[in-house]
């Protein structure tokens, strides 16, 4: 067992580096999720207003981020923005921006769906007691739709975490990039190093995403029971 592949993970600082890479991925995902949540909530609420121009603009924004593959978005922002628009950001910041804008776009659709599913009678009742539009959103529509939004939002969070695996394409030192470096550096001594390194990364992603998936499923089931009850 002197050369068991699993040892590649414990060679030198490999484990620390892999976990460091995971932290980079998580940091990008966390910033993107926080910024995207706030922005998505605002944009989603704006999409429910009856302003046709605003609606078209926000719809185009959503479709742009939905239709274009994430890899292309990353390349677009990482290579084209600095070259053609003289915007220079580090790879990590650029990744946070792309993921935040993507999250906000998808989130806006979840928020919009949640808000429009609140009964119009509730809007009438809110108006009838004199609430203004902002108060109507704040006290009536958003609190009542949040429960509907949570499962889809958790799924979106899990998608963002998984998609951070593309970060190596714009040279971010994420867990996959570091994993590859480790495999290449130790390739001669550990022939099946890739199996263990990627296996370990698989487990890391699984530990992050599976509880989220279970939680979303639990909430969805609870929602069905509440709706029927």
């Amino acid at each position: 067992m002197a050369h068991s592949g699993i040892n590649i993970l414990f060679e030198g600082r490999n484990m620390v580096r892999l976990l460091g890479g995971l932290w980079i991925s998580a940091k990008i995902a966390i910033v993107a999720i926080v910024v995207g949540l706030i922005l998505g909530l605002i944009l989603g609420a704006l999409r429910t207003l009856h302003n046709p121009i605003l609606r078209v603009i926000l719809r185009l924004y959503l479709e742009f981020f939905r239709v274009i593959p994430t890899v292309v978005l990353l390349f677009l922002f990482y290579y084209i923005l600095p070259q053609n628009f003289n915007i220079n950001m580090g790879a990590e910041s650029m990744a946070m921006l792309v993921f935040a804008l993507w999250f906000a776009a998808e989130m806006s659709d979840i928020v919009r769906g949640g808000i429009i599913s609140v009964s119009p009678h509730q809007v009438d009742a809110g108006k009838a007691i004199g609430l203004n539009r902002l108060q109507l959103y704040y006290y009536v529509l958003i609190p009542q739709s949040i429960q509907l939004m949570i499962p889809a939002t958790i799924n979106l969070v899990s998608r963002i975490i998984k998609t951070t695996s593309l970060l190596l394409l714009i040279s971010v030192m994420d867990v996959i990039n570091i994993g590859q470096q480790i495999i290449e550096a130790n390739g001669q001594r550990y022939e099946n190093g890739a199996f263990w390194v990627y296996g370990f990364i698989f487990i890391l992603y699984f530990i992050l995403c599976y509880p989220l998936s279970l939680w979303a499923r639990h909430l969805e089931r609870k929602e069905v029971v509440t709706a029927n009850g």
Binding site: S119, H121, Q122, D124, A125, G126, K127, A128, I129, G130, L131, N132, Y139, V140, P143, Q144
Partner: peptide, 21 residues
């Protein structure tokens, strides 16, 4: 300018429409 006026005109609906939350 209905919003300020509605404080002076109370309305009750067929389906109660209390805020469930």
């Amino acid at each position: 300018k209905w919003q300020p006026l509605r404080q002076h005109i109370g309305m009750v609906f067929q389906s109660y429409d209390l805020f469930p939350n």
